[in-house]
Amino acid sequence: GEDLPLPPGWSVDWTMRGRKYYIDHNTNTTHWSHPLESGPSSG
């Protein structure tokens, strides 16, 4: 998808195989999909 801006506290990194993933430092979790690309989340 597009390179959307990341929310505060997020960063992007790549695996050893070159796969892009996103790090949420607020909750110390990692995600394969961009936080703003996922569907609407409630709460």
Rank of each mutant, 00 (worst) to 15 (best):
residue 1 G to Y: 10
residue 1 G to Q: 10
residue 1 G to H: 10
residue 1 G to E: 10
residue 1 G to W: 09
residue 2 E to K: 11
residue 2 E to F: 09
residue 2 E to M: 09
residue 2 E to T: 11
residue 3 D to V: 09
residue 3 D to T: 08
residue 3 D to F: 08
residue 3 D to A: 08
residue 3 D to R: 08
residue 4 L to S: 12
residue 4 L to Y: 09
residue 4 L to I: 09
residue 4 L to H: 08
residue 4 L to M: 11
residue 5 P to L: 12
residue 5 P to F: 07
residue 5 P to D: 15
residue 5 P to Q: 10
residue 6 L to H: 02
residue 6 L to Q: 03
residue 6 L to E: 15
residue 6 L to Y: 02
residue 7 P to L: 02
residue 7 P to I: 00
residue 7 P to S: 00
residue 7 P to F: 00
residue 8 P to F: 06
residue 8 P to W: 05
residue 8 P to K: 06
residue 8 P to Q: 07
residue 8 P to N: 06
residue 8 P to D: 08
residue 8 P to G: 03
residue 8 P to M: 06
residue 8 P to L: 06
residue 9 G to Q: 01
residue 9 G to T: 00
residue 10 W to T: 00
residue 10 W to E: 00
residue 10 W to Q: 00
residue 10 W to A: 00
residue 10 W to F: 01
residue 10 W to R: 00
residue 10 W to G: 00
residue 10 W to K: 02
residue 11 S to G: 06
residue 11 S to Y: 04
residue 11 S to D: 09
residue 11 S to W: 02
residue 11 S to R: 05
residue 11 S to V: 08
residue 11 S to P: 01
residue 12 V to N: 02
residue 12 V to D: 05
residue 12 V to M: 09
residue 12 V to R: 04
residue 12 V to T: 07
residue 12 V to S: 05
residue 12 V to Q: 07
residue 13 D to G: 15
residue 13 D to E: 14
residue 13 D to H: 15
residue 13 D to M: 13
residue 13 D to L: 09
residue 14 W to N: 08
residue 14 W to K: 12
residue 14 W to L: 10
residue 14 W to T: 14
residue 14 W to V: 15
residue 14 W to D: 07
residue 15 T to E: 06
residue 15 T to L: 04
residue 15 T to P: 06
residue 15 T to H: 06
residue 15 T to F: 04
residue 15 T to A: 03
residue 15 T to N: 10
residue 15 T to S: 06
residue 15 T to D: 15
residue 16 M to N: 14
residue 16 M to R: 15
residue 16 M to G: 15
residue 16 M to V: 15
residue 16 M to I: 14
residue 16 M to A: 15
residue 16 M to H: 14
residue 16 M to Y: 14
residue 17 R to A: 15
residue 17 R to E: 15
residue 17 R to W: 14
residue 17 R to H: 15
residue 17 R to P: 07
residue 17 R to C: 15
residue 18 G to C: 10
residue 18 G to E: 03
residue 18 G to Q: 03
residue 18 G to I: 04
residue 18 G to P: 01
residue 19 R to T: 14
residue 19 R to N: 09
residue 19 R to P: 02
residue 19 R to C: 15
residue 19 R to S: 08
residue 19 R to E: 15
residue 19 R to W: 10
residue 20 K to H: 04
residue 20 K to S: 02
residue 20 K to P: 08
residue 20 K to G: 02
residue 20 K to Q: 06
residue 20 K to I: 11
residue 20 K to R: 08
residue 21 Y to A: 03
residue 21 Y to R: 05
residue 21 Y to H: 01
residue 21 Y to D: 02
residue 21 Y to F: 12
residue 21 Y to W: 03
residue 22 Y to A: 01
residue 22 Y to N: 00
residue 22 Y to S: 00
residue 22 Y to M: 00
residue 22 Y to T: 01
residue 22 Y to H: 00
residue 22 Y to G: 00
residue 23 I to P: 00
residue 23 I to Q: 03
residue 23 I to Y: 08
residue 23 I to E: 02
residue 23 I to V: 09
residue 24 D to G: 01
residue 24 D to F: 02
residue 24 D to R: 01
residue 24 D to P: 00
residue 24 D to M: 01
residue 25 H to Q: 07
residue 25 H to T: 07
residue 25 H to F: 08
residue 25 H to W: 12
residue 25 H to E: 06
residue 25 H to S: 08
residue 25 H to R: 06
residue 25 H to I: 05
residue 26 N to M: 07
residue 26 N to E: 06
residue 26 N to K: 06
residue 26 N to F: 06
residue 26 N to H: 05
residue 26 N to W: 05
residue 27 T to I: 01
residue 27 T to D: 03
residue 27 T to G: 02
residue 27 T to K: 05
residue 27 T to L: 03
residue 27 T to A: 04
residue 27 T to Q: 04
residue 28 N to P: 02
residue 28 N to W: 05
residue 28 N to F: 04
residue 28 N to G: 13
residue 28 N to V: 03
residue 28 N to R: 07
residue 28 N to Q: 08
residue 28 N to E: 07
residue 28 N to K: 08
residue 29 T to N: 03
residue 29 T to Y: 02
residue 29 T to S: 07
residue 29 T to K: 06
residue 29 T to W: 01
residue 29 T to E: 06
residue 29 T to F: 02
residue 30 T to E: 07
residue 30 T to M: 12
residue 30 T to V: 14
residue 30 T to W: 13
residue 30 T to N: 08
residue 30 T to S: 08
residue 31 H to K: 04
residue 31 H to A: 04
residue 31 H to D: 01
residue 31 H to Y: 08
residue 32 W to Y: 06
residue 32 W to A: 04
residue 32 W to T: 05
residue 32 W to D: 04
residue 32 W to M: 05
residue 32 W to L: 05
residue 32 W to G: 03
residue 33 S to W: 11
residue 33 S to V: 14
residue 33 S to N: 14
residue 33 S to I: 13
residue 33 S to D: 10
residue 33 S to A: 09
residue 33 S to H: 15
residue 34 H to V: 05
residue 34 H to E: 02
residue 34 H to A: 05
residue 34 H to Y: 06
residue 34 H to T: 04
residue 34 H to Q: 03
residue 34 H to G: 03
residue 35 P to E: 04
residue 35 P to M: 02
residue 35 P to H: 02
residue 35 P to F: 03
residue 35 P to A: 02
residue 35 P to S: 03
residue 35 P to N: 02
residue 36 L to S: 09
residue 36 L to W: 09
residue 36 L to Y: 09
residue 37 E to H: 08
residue 37 E to G: 11
residue 37 E to A: 13
residue 37 E to S: 12
residue 37 E to N: 09
residue 37 E to P: 07
residue 37 E to V: 13
residue 38 S to I: 12
residue 38 S to Q: 12
residue 38 S to R: 12
residue 38 S to N: 12
residue 38 S to G: 10
residue 38 S to D: 10
residue 38 S to E: 13
residue 38 S to P: 12
residue 38 S to W: 10
residue 39 G to A: 14
residue 39 G to L: 13
residue 39 G to V: 13
residue 39 G to M: 11
residue 40 P to A: 12
residue 40 P to Q: 13
residue 40 P to I: 11
residue 40 P to L: 12
residue 40 P to E: 10
residue 40 P to F: 11
residue 41 S to W: 07
residue 41 S to P: 14
residue 41 S to H: 10
residue 42 S to F: 14
residue 42 S to I: 11
residue 42 S to N: 13
residue 42 S to E: 14
residue 42 S to M: 11
residue 42 S to V: 14
residue 42 S to D: 13
residue 42 S to Y: 14
residue 42 S to T: 13
residue 43 G to W: 11
residue 43 G to R: 11
residue 43 G to E: 11
residue 43 G to F: 10
residue 43 G to H: 10
residue 43 G to S: 10
residue 43 G to C: 13
residue 43 G to V: 11
residue 43 G to Q: 11
